[in-house]
Amino acid sequence: MNAATQASSQPSLMSRLAASGAHQRLLAFASLIVLLVVFSVASPNFMQMSNMIAILQATSVNGVLAVAATIVIITGGIDLSVGTMMTFTAVIAGVILTYGGMPLPLGVLGAIATGALCGFCSGSFIARMKIPPFIATLGMMLILKGLSLVISGTKPIYFNGTPGFDQISRGSLIGNILPFLPIPNGVLILFIVAGAASYVLGRTVLGRYTFALGSNEEAVRLSGVNTGSWKVAIYTVSGAICGIAGILIASRLNSAQPALGQGYELEAIAAVVIGGTSLSGGRGTIIGTLIGALIMAVLTNGLRVLSVAQEWQTVVTGAIIIMAVYADMVRKKEV
């Protein structure tokens, strides 16, 4: 038995790497390094600490949203509402803090709870009413966009009355301790969220069912698992993470901008896809998504440093997405 295990561990390891999307992740990581090298050679300004921090800061919101999207996409679903959900939770935070004058922690919790509630609704539409995820979350996206505008009266809500709110994202706990490394809190929060999500996906029953639903939902149902409830739970968690993104963006802008949000979902999904998560479900990692989000931020930043027109940056991002998915398809054929 032992000998057999040893003899065949080689192909098994290979296939496991392939199956877990590690190949794509390596490819994504290599692309990230290549981009960093190319941009630093092309411009001396690129590799400076301030610019690196700017890239990380730019990654934070999209990164958190992408983590929320990753969880849903691993189940084989999709969430088009993450962007407007983020905005909606930011507006709710504004209502609680600025209009309601409540203490800061209540605003934060309110935003996260609102996100969870929105996710719960999406999840219920999908699992109970059997509406396809694409449609359910498309509807949710529009509902939340509209509600944000209605509640805010289409005007931004500023957080000037809540001292310290902007510090949630812009302050730097690390910088206070290590002055040479002024990494903003927003980035810290991204890594905490990513770490927690990674743990949940890899170590908990919720994570196990997330992958199992994406891998073969019917088999899970026939194992006696209440797949509907778990799906609702997964969308709820994803919604709560959108709430965190809402706090981050509101803090960074020190305001809730009700018109913002649409388009963020596509950036988030792009990061997920570049990071090797399969849109057909059952396969994906948070670390891949982080790399995907970083690639997009580095690209945007690098092209700006090289003074490439912003219009072209969008074109390049689109091309990258197609290349990333093509690489994934080629790999799938090989397996």
Partner: peptide
């Protein structure tokens, strides 16, 4: 209908019994 073929033997064996292997906080 029977297997999540993309997952491991261990995950599939435990699929119908995950509750048994879960702590209070949902950790496997």
């Amino acid at each position: 209908y029977g297997l999540a073929t993309g997952m491991t033997v261990r995950a599939n064996v435990a699929m119908a019994t995950l509750k048994k292997f879960t702590s209070k906080f949902g950790v496997l």
